Simulated assay, not measured.
Amino acid sequence: MTFRIRTATSRDLQPLYEMAKLTGGGFTNLPPDRKALTAKLARSADACLKSEGEISDELFVLVLENVETGEVRGTAQLFTRVGQNWPFYSYRLATLTQHSKELERTFRAEMLNLVTDLEGSSEVGGLFLHPAERAGGLGLLLARSRYLFIAMHRARFADRILAELRGIIDERGGSPFWDGVAGRFFGMSFQEADYFNAINGNQFIADLMPRHPVYIAMLPESARSAIGLPHPSGRAAMRMLEAEGFAHEGYVDIFDGGPTMTARTDRVASIAGARNAVLATGEPAEGGFGALVATGNLANFRCCFATAERRGEELLIDAEAAAELGAEPGATVWFVER
């Protein structure tokens, strides 16, 4: 396989823009806007120049590159600490139980509460794979490479991590959840609000969103049925997150009602299972194990699939993978079994 993950550069603007136009809406972290994407790449470059220190609001952008052609065919992002420049809002599902002695009945009302509980968490997001490449495990490579990046730069990330999954989008590109909840207060379509948020941030939510709980029973059925459900294209991503140890703990996106998955950073399987070793000379023996292997620091980060063999403190990987990583014997590499 001739694909690798690397840290994005300013030269990746055009392919990122072309992919952003393919997302179909509701993909806040990858807006089809050159100015916004340029700002993201600049933030990532600045984060790569910063030495490790106190956790702050940083962004790293990764891309999936075909090594043979140089084409960029996917992307993913890591946010080190959300909610620092503006509040990070979520809805959280809650239940209010009330009892009437006279009626001898107990009523349980499900509600949506506007919260900032997840403020200060790290976030993995912005994962998009070109439709022509959705085979061969490349989505898995994109997703799990982020966890190796975190393991290699652990001091830059918080102790809790989240992932927002895109919610249900109808055939018109609208959101039944938005139309039934927030859209009633903003006078904006879902596409308008989503685009505005992607470009300007969500302070306008703080300015206009009502603070009172929303009783789910009062919402239209179309909105109720969308709460906590991922977009059909995101179901595989949800399964991958669950396999890593993420769980849906009742948080949903304020725009489209999609599920927000959370985990303790050090308990994410690919982070907890990541190990470092010294790259050795030679080919792994027949029957070696499949692995994701990464090397480099920040701007020089590289990751790919490899066939590997562990020999004490050393790791042997196949020659193709070593070439994709640009790694020489003696280099420090990080790996996790595939």
Rank of each mutant, 00 (worst) to 15 (best):
A36V: 09
P230Y: 08
D57C: 06
Y91C: 03
F196K: 12
G312M: 02
K40Y: 14
H99C: 06
Y147M: 15
E102S: 15
E328S: 13
A198T: 09
G24T: 13
V72T: 14
G330T: 05
R235D: 06
E104Y: 12
S51M: 11
L219G: 04
A76W: 00
L219C: 10
H153V: 07
A132W: 04
T97E: 14
D207Q: 13
G25F: 04
M209A: 15
T260R: 00
A322E: 05
G174W: 04
I169P: 01
P131V: 09
D117Q: 05
I161T: 12
V82E: 06
S44F: 02
D57M: 00
L49S: 12
M111E: 13
E18I: 04
L129H: 05
N85K: 14
V268W: 04
G326L: 09
S233P: 01
A223Q: 06
Q77C: 08
Y195K: 08
F185E: 14
R146W: 07
E244P: 00
P32F: 10
G26E: 07
F185A: 13
F107P: 00
R154P: 05
A42I: 12
S10H: 09
Q203M: 09
L162N: 00
S233E: 14
M238W: 01
V67Y: 02
E119T: 12
I168W: 07
E119D: 04
D318V: 08
R4F: 13
